[in-house]
């Protein structure tokens, strides 16, 4: 489901006319909206996406989302490295600890109503 939403989001992001929108189990076209940011559409074309009029299975969506990443990796545009993410997480944890030592981290705005 999440992957489906993600793929739907990718299809919607910056797509030129017509704009595909996922509703229920179908991707529909919502009108003549235009985007001024062409990169996601071109990127989608580059990685092999095409807008569809029927919704593929969750398995297919997962495979397509994986293909996006694979092609980005193969093209070496922006390779991901777990050790880089770990270093960033470490830096941010240190920043957060220093900040939270200076004051309360959370204030309740609305209590949960059961």
């Amino acid at each position: 489901m999440m992957v489906g939403v993600v793929v739907s989001g990718l299809l919607e992001l910056g797509t030129a006319s017509p704009s595909p929108v996922r509703r229920e189990r179908r991707i529909t076209y919502s009108g003549e909206l235009r985007s001024e940011t062409s990169l996601p559409e071109r990127l989608a074309t580059y990685v092999g996406y095409d807008a569809t009029t029927s919704v593929p299975s969750a398995k297919t969506i997962r495979a397509e989302a994986g293909a996006v990443m694979n092609r980005l990796e193969i093209a070496a545009l922006l390779p991901m490295r777990e050790e880089a993410q770990a270093l960033v997480d470490e830096m941010l944890a240190a920043s957060r600890a220093a900040r939270r030592a200076a004051g309360p981290a959370k204030q309740v705005i609305k209590r949960r109503v059961r």
Partner: peptide, 22 residues
């Protein structure tokens, strides 16, 4: 989020690589 303390040159190289993803 401000990174504190300021990153060293070595860490800046990693930040500028954009190899992290969140």
């Amino acid at each position: 989020e401000v990174i504190q303390p300021a990153p060293t040159e070595d860490k800046l190289l990693i930040l500028r690589s954009y190899a992290f993803y969140r």
